[in-house]
């Protein structure tokens, strides 16, 4: 492949083939500074949001319907643009990203939705492989990495099935496999358990925790308090567009005495699966 002109764009960092430098990896993965988003002129959906997410954190983002949880995530994957403030992803201001660079930002993210957003008439394999096809990866490598991802989400050997024949829980696993197959630095899960029954919701949450255990940062938006109560992850609560920290995150744990967890959090050391290389996406 021809050498890309890295210096030609302010956000070449996010382009396929680019690698994160040491300075970028030392910074918090996500910083929101005084972020405002208006969908109605007189009523901001997000008002002055300040937030820092460290690498390797698992954060619940919670709040009532319409509080701004989804908007917050949408600003991060640049479905929308902030009206004021800035969002730094690995130190780069993604709020100012040009349209052409947005795809390269999204390649560093894994996004999972409440309504799964899988292509029902594709096979499971095709649904997961699309994320790697976009990266122009060799077919052989795509097959092996899709196989690995399906194994991690408990769908090994089912790549050939049509996705429409799967249950809701299985479809969400396909969506999770698609989100992790590129080994992104950050996973954004927007109410991923919203369409699932409580038992399946716990399964999916556990799946995200296993992914988090490999070092991937996860932002998990949910309004399901029963789910939040079962785990002792950092809790970011949004109400009427304002962010309130209900439980503190890694940065505080590191600086202060660690709080006693209600339930043992899953750590990389606990996870028997082979650790993948999470981080800013780089194509070999």
């Amino acid at each position: 492949m021809a050498k890309r002109k890295e210096g030609a764009r302010p956000f070449a960092f996010f382009r396929a083939g680019a690698r994160a430098d040491a300075v970028s990896t030392a910074k918090p993965i996500l910083v929101l500074e005084d972020v405002y988003k208006y969908f109605r002129e007189d009523h901001p959906t997000l008002r002055g949001v300040n937030l820092v997410v460290e690498r390797g954190e698992f954060c619940f983002v919670t709040g009532p319907s319409g509080a701004g949880k989804s908007t917050l995530l949408q600003l991060i994957y640049r479905k929308h643009t902030v009206d004021a403030g800035r969002i730094l992803f690995c130190g780069r201001d993604i709020a100012r990203l040009r349209e052409k660079s947005i795809p390269f930002l999204r390649r560093n993210l894994g996004i999972v939705f409440q309504d799964f957003k899988v292509v029902r008439h594709w096979t499971v394999q095709e649904n997961v492989a699309i994320a790697l096809d976009i990266l122009d990866m060799p077919r052989r490598l795509v097959r092996s990495r899709v196989g690995e991802a399906l194994e991690r989400v408990g769908l090994e050997g089912r790549g050939g099935e049509r996705t429409e024949n799967l249950s809701g829980g299985e479809m969400q696993r396909v969506a999770v496999a698609r989100a992790i197959v590129t080994e992104p630095a950050l996973i954004l899960a927007d109410e991923p358990t919203g369409n699932l029954d409580p038992h399946l919701a716990i399964d999916i949450l556990t799946l995200f925790e296993e992914i988090h255990a490999t070092g991937t940062t996860v932002l998990f938006a949910t309004h399901d308090h029963s789910l939040i109560a079962k785990r002792n992850h950092r809790l970011i609560s949004i109400d009427e567009g304002r962010v309130l920290e209900a439980r503190q995150g890694l940065a505080s744990w590191r600086s202060d005495a660690p709080p006693a967890p209600a339930e043992e959090p899953v750590t990389p050391a606990d996870n028997p699966r082979p650790v993948l290389r999470p981080g800013l996406h780089a194509v070999s």
Binding site: P103, R106, R107, I111, K117, L135, R178
Partner: peptide, 16 residues
């Protein structure tokens, strides 16, 4: 449309 949406969310360029 669902295909296009999925591809765009996975980081597909307009050309792709």
């Amino acid at each position: 449309r669902d295909e296009i949406e999925v591809m765009k969310l996975c980081g597909a360029t307009d050309r792709f």
